[in-house]
């Protein structure tokens, strides 16, 4: 059934899916094998242009770019995955709770949670991420936290919006009459119904997190050297761009392809999982209405 669905899916989804899978495979492969050792410094082999042997060339320490990109992509994916995971694990229950209390007559908790949401949204996210990593020390762990915090309100708002509509449905009414509590209803009836929505959003947030991780590593606050990261590679490439442009081109393209793949997959998923969503796409107005109501 999944295979049939895949065959019918739009071309963009297939492209996105294959790109994303390729990255995941390369990232997983890097745990056990990379063409060259990414930690080994070999000054005799530095600044080799892309070609046979080193298909993406080597950097100023003679490290193989392809190998570094494999490990860098692995780090980026790991950071983003955990960061989006944090956003979902905290955000979704908050959103469900908010919707549940509101739909059963309470307003206070919903108001507090949603104003808290607005509050996090009001902070400039990149600047705060830079501040958090600067305060608590640079590194992958703090980058995860800094990116994760700004994913919480996204998922809270999304699941609240989805859940509010569902609480009006007859089957939820029936479940309430049957004596099920708010938490039980949210978990058993609401969550499965908004899962599609959340999966699509998670894909999009994941691609945003990849760029955020690259930005943080670029300013030296993400994954720390000698561990390779795509952002850091771009930063180092900048001064050598005149005679070794591949150092800037290849890691940049690697980021673009990964983000593009994830976005295409997210858009495709949205079309496959919920055709209704496609027509309601300009959700700016609806989102605002939810906030004001």
């Amino acid at each position: 059934m999944i295979i049939q669905l895949f065959k019918k899916s739009p071309l963009s989804f297939k492209i996105g899916f294959f790109i994303s899978i390729a990255y995941v495979i390369a990232a997983l492969l890097s745990f056990i094998w990379t063409p060259y050792d990414v930690m080994a410094i070999n000054l005799e082999k530095r600044f080799i242009a892309p070609g046979i042997g080193h298909i993406f060339g080597t950097d100023h320490f003679g490290r193989d770019i392809l190998s570094m990109i494999m490990v860098g992509a692995r780090n980026a994916i790991a950071v983003s995955l955990v960061a989006v995971g944090i956003g979902m694990i905290i955000g979704v229950p908050l959103g469900l709770w908010s919707a549940a209390t509101r739909s059963t007559g309470g307003r206070v908790i919903d108001e507090i949670l949603m104003r808290g949401n607005d509050l996090v949204f009001a902070f400039p996210s990149l600047l705060m991420a830079i501040m958090i990593t600067a305060v608590f020390g640079p590194g992958a762990m703090n980058a995860i936290i800094a990116i994760g915090i700004f994913n919480i309100p996204v998922f809270a708002r999304m699941s609240r919006g989805g859940a509010l509509g569902l609480w009006e449905k007859e089957y939820i009414m029936a479940a309430r009459v049957a004596g099920k509590g708010k938490a039980k209803i949210s978990y058993e009836h609401i969550l499965p119904n908004i899962m599609n929505l959340l999966i699509v959003q998670a894909t999009i947030q994941f691609s945003i997190a990849i760029i955020a991780e690259a930005s943080l590593s670029y300013v030296g606050l993400g994954t720390q050297p000698p561990n390779p990261s795509l952002g850091r590679m771009l930063f180092e490439a900048q001064t050598m761009i005149f005679f070794a442009p591949w150092l800037a081109l290849v890691p940049g393209l690697a980021i673009v392809m990964l983000v593009l793949g994830l976005n295409l997959m997210g858009d495709g998923l949205r079309d496959i999982l919920d055709p209704k969503l496609r027509r309601k796409e300009p959700d700016g107005v609806e989102a605002k209405q939810n906030v004001s109501s």
């Binding site: 691609s207 690259a214 771009l234 940049g252 673009v256 392809m257 983000v259 593009l260």
Partner: peptide
Amino acid sequence: GVAIPNFW
């Protein structure tokens, strides 16, 4: 365009 990091 969406996928391109502005600093790159």
